[in-house]
Design a protein around this nucleic acid. Sequence first.
DNA 1: AAAATATATTGACAATTTTCTATATGATGC
DNA 2: GCATCATATAGAAAATTGTCAATATATTTT
Lengths: 102, 102
Amino acid sequence: MDERRTAAIFKAFCDENRIRIIKLLRSGEKCACKLLEEIHVTQPTLSHHMKILCDAEIVVGRKEGKWIHYSISEKGVEQAKECLRQLTTLDINGKNGPCREK
Amino acid sequence: MDERRTAAIFKAFCDENRIRIIKLLRSGEKCACKLLEEIHVTQPTLSHHMKILCDAEIVVGRKEGKWIHYSISEKGVEQAKECLRQLTTLDINGKNGPCREK
DNA sequence: AAAATATATTGACAATTTTCTATATGATGC
DNA sequence: GCATCATATAGAAAATTGTCAATATATTTT
């Protein structure tokens, strides 16, 4: 995975309001208006955060009439975990050996 | 874990240059000057990124003479993984039930 | 002690992100 | 159709972050 996509995934988790939104979604699907009651931002600001979360594929929206029900995307979360794993597991046989001073 | 700390941990992973730095450290400990050769930023900028990575405890620095050898902190990485897990696992028995329209 | 090397800090500027107000779109109900 | 409700978009302001040049600190070398 490229650095740009990796950054986008973790950007989902690096704003305090988005973290609160994700926490609210842990207990199940919620519509934007319900989230708006809990998160103290204006409606357009919430909409902006939901877009970032959806673009990162951490959250998915299900449209039903005039509502959008948001929920945590199990698939997206697995991708984030896998991404974190790949980024942080030591690569013993990598091309770059340890740093030796010249 | 509070939202502030959670955000700080994931901020480590949401800048493309920091992601490159972490990738370089996968193959083992490297001194800042070595990292500087690979990442195309000035020395103060690299220093700034290393501070963010160390504050988030994803990376640790080991001082040896005038060098600082940076490496991925296994402990910090485990904390990040645990944090991601806690944040994203569904909470079936949580206090907030599913969203029901009024 | 002076020069050289590695890294950190300061302060300014640029880029990006978060937030808001105002307005638009799209769906439902009268 | 018109009013209402839920969400999105546009555009601007505020806050935060990333970057650099200049300078400081700490260590080693001569």
